[in-house]
Design a binder for these strands. Structure first.
Lengths: 341, 341
DNA sequence: TTGTACGCGTTATCAA
DNA sequence: TTGATAACGCGTACAA
């Protein structure tokens, strides 16, 4: 691929250690396993010599024969990586605690997944956590290889494939309802880019619920999933109309941008003039400058559940597909005027 | 390790494809290479059959024989992962652009590196980007294996080992100087945990420079590298004394916490009553609620340079060791009263 | 252009 | 308890 890169240097092999220790190569191999019947003296001698020679087993060769790479793949979109790194962090910690390696793939957005699939398929992963959409035919390729597959915040219907997600739609409905109950009638919605499934779920549920409540027109803008996107997007959205009295944003970064647009660009009081609700409950949302009312997505818990589901499937690949839907909690701070809980 | 995990299922091999196509296994192998002399008809037929069978090469086996795993390891501390995810993001993008995989290791802090070293050594990486300290004897193990090693924001002296870092000390001196020039005489410093090398470099340079300027007593607190740490740490620090008129924080998260402590807990005006300077220039620092004066650490650029250094060394492992020190830029916003530039 | 045969460094099997 | 030997799946000399 591209430049001609030098191979890694020769390192000591179990064969080298065996020769130095005057034993067979297979004996060396056994000394690095826990149980197998090796006399204490032999083991001690071999391990000592191995250590002196700087020998370390080659996990490539071992994986080849044991058919276990001890690696889990994690596919995340650029957005998750930048704005919700807690997920990768949590997964990293948990995998390490299980002694499993983490191969990270960052893709631009959900559509870009096909560009990395070949590379992912060529490495015999023990499992894959995918935080992106995936075409059914590609899902099938993993399944037919028997690679445990878990979708995070994406719902994919396929045999032997698990999903763990927040119930984004339900949360979107809740936000619409509580804002409406508090007397708001003039709404807007700022969502993420078209093709960001999570944003769509949240925003659609919000708008649909309002429609059921008799509010059909909800000015909406789609922008990139960022602070700047939210700030500029909202300003563009209300250029030709008067500001709404409540805005729902598909995530907290957008919401913080909208809030700053209101306060610093438009001179509006939040929540006096306008209520703002976000989604995720990122750390910044709770800080005194913002105190954003939002729906909490408990990422560390979700990461833990995801790991559990994946480990269970690795242990029992033939388990029926499981869908795990978590309920988001509305965190009431001061950025929105709400009826008492 | 731990639970008994089922191995991955059998997948089609080049041998299976060869038999189905009526050619030799080596022919199949050649069809997946770019150059090697294969007749167009054979290649087409083999690739078609391979595709039908869902065949994908096994990168484990290939790596074993080519002695190139096509994987780069990235070791980051928990702190980097949580508070400066831009680094992992940038590295992920760049590695993917080069067709190289990324094996991520998240460790608690710089001392925890020994706990993952065995696992890292067993996988024949093409290179390793380490954002943590590493004991010299462990550095030597990578070097003796010929694994290209690049330290990011850590300076390690070893033959054939590259380092890329911001000049934290110089930046710390600059901050001390500009604050002093602006007339501040009463300082405080909020730094990260003991054993966070970057924090130490920044804070020590700041304090040493002030000492040279005749200010020996700079109340300092060490706390965890976070917003909450900064906020609470600063409150604790000034419990028994009057607030200083300038605070230097070893990173932006701390600085934002200190700023909120000043404004929301202590009722101080920033920068009227107190100047605050941070470090990193994370996105939040530029937002209107904060407008933090800080030293920019150009993470995307640094990631790019790091990649370049590593790729060069992979191509030429015997290159002499290189140290690349970048100058941080002081970003003048409104959280600190400074003399005009 | 294609086939044969070997080796990468392990673990697993079987015999001793 | 240990040793010889066969896989694992691929890339690559060498021969045809």
């Amino acid at each position: 691929m591209g430049a001609d890169r030098k191979p890694f240097q020769r390192r000591a092999t179990s064969y080298d250690v065996a020769r130095a220790a005057g034993v067979a190569q297979s004996t060396v191999s056994r000394c690095f396993k826990d149980d197998s019947g090796i006399s204490p003296e032999t083991r001690e001698k071999v391990l000592r010599i191995a250590s002196e020679m700087g020998y370390a087993r080659n996990s490539l060769a071992r994986s080849l024969i044991t058919r276990t790479s001890n690696m889990v793949g994690v596919i995340v979109t650029e957005f998750t990586m930048r704005n919700n790194p807690e997920l990768v962090y949590s997964l990293g910690i948990q995998l390490r605690a299980s002694g499993i390696g983490l191969i990270l793939q960052v893709i631009e957005n959900d559509h870009a997944i096909s560009s990395i699939l070949r590379q992912v398929l060529e490495f015999p992963l023990d499992g894959l956590i995918c935080c992106s959409e995936m075409p059914p035919e590609d899902v099938a390729r993993f399944v037919s290889r028997g690679i445990p597959l878990l979708f995070f915040n994406r719902i994919i219907e396929a045999a032997h494939v698990d999903c763990l997600a927040l119930d984004h739609a339900q949360a979107g409905r809740t936000v619409a309802r509580v804002l409406h109950e508090a007397g708001h009638r003039d709404f807007a919605c700022v969502k993420g880019p078209e093709g960001a499934p999570v944003s769509k779920l949240r925003a659609d549920a919000f708008r649909d619920t309002l429609k059921d409540l008799g509010i059909a027109d909800v000015p909406t803008c789609a922008t990139d999933f960022s602070y700047d996107g939210g700030r500029q997007g909202f300003l563009d959205l209300i250029r030709d109309r008067k500001p709404p009295d409540a805005v729902f944003c598909a995530n907290d970064q957008l919401a913080l941008g909208v809030m700053d647009a209101c306060r610093h660009d438009l001179g509006l009081d939040v929540p006096g003039d306008i209520s703002i609700v976000g989604f995720d409950d990122i750390p910044e949302a709770g800080r005194p400058s913002y105190l954003l009312t939002t729906v909490r997505q408990p990422i560390p818990d979700m990461a833990e559940q995801a790991m559990r589901l994946l480990m269970e499937r690795i242990a029992a690949p033939q388990l029926p597909a499981r869908k795990m839907l978590l309920t988001g909690e509305l965190i009431r701070r001061t950025s929105a005027r709400l009826a008492p809980a």
